[in-house]
Design a protein around this nucleic acid. Sequence first.
DNA 1: ACGCGTTTGTGAAGGAATGCACAAAGTCAC
DNA 2: GTGACTTTGTGCATTCCTTCACAAACGCGT
Lengths: 232, 232
Amino acid sequence: MSADPSSRRGIPDATVARLPEYLRALTGFAERGITSVSSEELAAAAGVRSAKLRKDLSHLGSYGVRGVGYEVDHLAYQISRELGLTQDWPVAIVGMGNLGHALAAYSGFATRGFRVVALLDQDCDLIGQEIAGLPVRPMSALADLVAARGLAIGVIATPAASAQDVCDALVDAGVRSILNFAPCVLAVPDGVDVRKVDLSTELQILAFHEQRKALARGSVLVDGSLRRVASE
Amino acid sequence: MSADPSSRRGIPDATVARLPEYLRALTGFAERGITSVSSEELAAAAGVRSAKLRKDLSHLGSYGVRGVGYEVDHLAYQISRELGLTQDWPVAIVGMGNLGHALAAYSGFATRGFRVVALLDQDCDLIGQEIAGLPVRPMSALADLVAARGLAIGVIATPAASAQDVCDALVDAGVRSILNFAPCVLAVPDGVDVRKVDLSTELQILAFHEQRKALARGSVLVDGSLRRVASE
DNA sequence: ACGCGTTTGTGAAGGAATGCACAAAGTCAC
DNA sequence: GTGACTTTGTGCATTCCTTCACAAACGCGT
């Protein structure tokens, strides 16, 4: 009733990507007993400019009070609702290598309505083992998980070589949102969302900027390696 | 001589972020013995449009041949050089929890010129233990690592509560590029780059789109939970 | 009741990234 | 050598995102 539902169709992707950060910042304020924040304070905590924050929030409605700021709990709830975190999301992790192990134990998932309901692997030796309190199950369990547990999100933590097969199996079972940690591009039909997290990509981007800073500082490239030039 | 060095100052961030993906696609072609690709083929393998790929590549020079395409090895080398991957980058991982463990063992780092030279933790019980062939060392080893090993990139895999302290220690030691896995915003002085990877943020973005798809499909929100509406 | 100081929400401007469409530049067959 | 064919590199239009700047809206003290 307060917000106009028809006006908030189409929140920009860039905004959606920042909402989780705002939410985390708000949680931090709430934990310290702060009940009200200005856009300036919240923006600083989230690492953005206040104008950007205000424009982002304006896409979900008008939840601030002019001259005062935002009520922490209320804004946190509104963002949670917009992101779909007021319901819980059953998640399955596929691929129980080092990374899958770490993800299964990662506490950050549970804190936001995400519930890891199954760990899957195609390696027969692993199946049946218990990791972080859950048994490792075979890929054939997928269809049942979607039907019985409402599984909606799949996390792929396998090597790149098997990622596409796993992805196909997830899609066949009815999973339409996939988080891919394997370093490869996945082909999916329309209506399926894939987000990719690539650890080595991030390092490469850092290396680019690091090289750039080194060059600016007066080093020079010799045979593709940085050599410091005698400066003074 | 071939490329004009003055013209390639300022490669757009969006382009830099895609270069690693192009490089991976090229590596894939090379492994299959393919020596030449068109922008169309490479774009398909990298999951982008060919026009975007060509514009991206045009920022680093003119390495294609009209009517033919790109020579796989040569283009891969040029991208590697631009990203700074022709030299090797000593990396230290701080925080040997589940995630740090997985990162230490992650093979994707080594394949691109990144060399994990040290694992650090502040937990006395962990120090001295060997993980993935490297001993866990105390934070006090940092200064020496920068001086003696040329450490340039730090990876933070600690809980959020200690991330800022670890970050400060890295910056004090002279590290100017940081990859942060802790779910928090880091404050750093000018000249230091931080990239953040947040597993839970990615899931939240997926949840947003998943909720949106469910609503479009005809479900309805009741008390913040999705309920399927009798459709026909 | 009223004016003052504060902070939001938002039009408008500016900048960045994307997609289109085609001329320029190359190969290849003959 | 020449012409047909292919594919790159890029100017232009468009869309998306960010930043600026300010009017509108609120609380508070008097």
